[in-house]
Design a protein around this nucleic acid. Structure first.
Lengths: 262, 262
DNA sequence: GGACTTGAGTGGTTTAGACCATTGCGATTA
DNA sequence: TAATCGCAATGGTCTAAACCACTCAAGTCC
């Protein structure tokens, strides 16, 4: 079995028995969980603690990991329930709306925030403007089938899109850019990393603070290669995964990726 | 300010002051952390607890989050230290080795495991073979500058690559596939999601069990569209992030060439 | 009937304390 | 000198207990 690999570090039968209780408990709870259909409920923390003969603290540590993995959902005054699966989001230039619909989900998006501020030097460089120029900052809450999924913060260079703030609503940003400014997206550079939910994000997402998140940053350019927007989005890690299709670079060995990156 | 959005849920001045101590503590520790250069050490848990007037449990909760975010590194009998930054890995068909080198890192890769087993129906479908056919399973530990970064588990259809198990070592798998079987990769489908490190993975990565991980699954095909391998890799979420370049779907293939010049 | 109150049960936070496992260094020893 | 031992400090695990915040349904009141 796979665990044998760990055994290598152990000299002949001396100090192997150091398996924390919450690991074992987590395994047993995961097993118990398999018998529960999505949305079904589990016993309370205190009941589990006495049933397995451990403290409530230990139970909570095991439950916390299962929750972080998306296998459990916990509701404060209510109980602990089996988790739902993960949705997938394709990494592509198409809009969130299009992509969700293609997965048979009903996407909605609400504007939380729209404000204008001055660009700091770093942001100015990203957006191709001068430091101190006006930047439009939009915050959106993305939902799928009514469930909050992600918080998206876009920043756009106002000098390039004068009056953009007046066109923006709950509708498609890319549609506005095309209709009013003739801008089409050409390519984008995305980075994906892990993060933990801040209290504010958790409150908006119906999540818990400290929950696992996928942090996606997108730097978009138009078909002429000029910067269009810079976006940071946090997605619920327990409900989301990303999909990308990669194509062979060999067709022209001097392909895209390696050289674009300075 | 942005946080005002949260205030909507609070009725007139009644129950706003519900900020857990470990949130506030985390902020203060993060601030304290800014004054420490990467690798520098922080006070011990007990010292922090008494200094901030909270219990050690609360300190540990705050430290745990900072650790999960990669801002701290903790070493058991030794101490707590400021974290290093994150490396980036490009999502592309090129090999791990190439990619790391292009970032100025010294990549190494060791074979942990090579075994042959029978494919279950699901795996058989992924690899384009019949259920029960032989599958070669390879487990590799990837390092950058000697530091363990990821565990990669590849599965390849032996009926398509007879004798492959004899060619495999610490070298390039894709090189072997090309030289002995004339196979070149055409495209791949990748998914990225969050996960937590299992005890076994943590032991190999020098990590802690329960640490944040990026789980990357890759389904690779050759230039003829036939399945070549199915890979699951876990990357340290505190040390890694992924980068992808997206191209516009509407302006077909030649858009790539256009973009390269940019 | 409808609105309100109440209380039991749930998960969330925090404490104080005990003990374990690992590390690293100083003192001791061969 | 070089190896070993011991010990103190560190982070890791676990407990028992208290209290808070939220939910929901049963009961109450109008």
């Amino acid at each position: 079995m796979g665990e044998n690999l760990l055994g290598d570090a152990v000299e002949n039968g001396k100090k192997s028995p150091r398996t924390p209780k919450h690991w074992e408990l987590k395994e047993r709870l995961a097993e118990l969980l398999r018998a529960v259909s999505p949305g079904g409920s589990l016993p309370g923390e205190r009941a589990l603690a006495s049933e397995f003969g451990v403290s409530r603290t230990t139970v909570r540590k095991a439950l916390a990991e299962l929750t972080a993995e998306g296998r459990l959902t916990r509701v404060h005054g209510s109980g602990t329930f089996a988790g739902e699966g993960k949705l997938t989001q394709r990494l592509q230039l198409s809009s969130y709306t299009e992509d969700m619909r293609s997965h048979g989900r009903r996407p909605t998006s609400s504007l939380l925030d729209a404000r204008i501020g001055a660009a700091d030097p770093e942001l100015a460089a990203l957006l191709g403007i001068r430091s101190g120029d006006d930047v439009l900052r939009l915050r959106r809450l993305r939902r799928a089938d009514g469930e909050p999924m992600a918080i998206e913060t876009s920043r756009l260079p106002l000098p390039r899109f004068p009056g953009l703030d007046r066109y923006v609503g709950d509708g498609s940003l890319y549609g506005v850019l095309y209709q009013h400014y003739g801008v089409e997206l050409g390519h984008a550079e995305e980075t994906i990393e892990t993060a933990l939910a801040t209290p504010a994000e958790a409150a908006l997402l119906g999540n818990e603070a400290g929950a696992l998140m996928l942090l996606l940053s997108r730097h978009s350019f138009d078909t002429d290669g000029r910067p269009v927007e810079w976006v940071r989005s946090v997605y619920r890690g327990d409900r989301y995964k990303f999909v990308a299709t990669l194509v062979s670079p060999q067709s022209s060995d001097d392909s895209i990726a390696a050289r674009v990156e300075r």
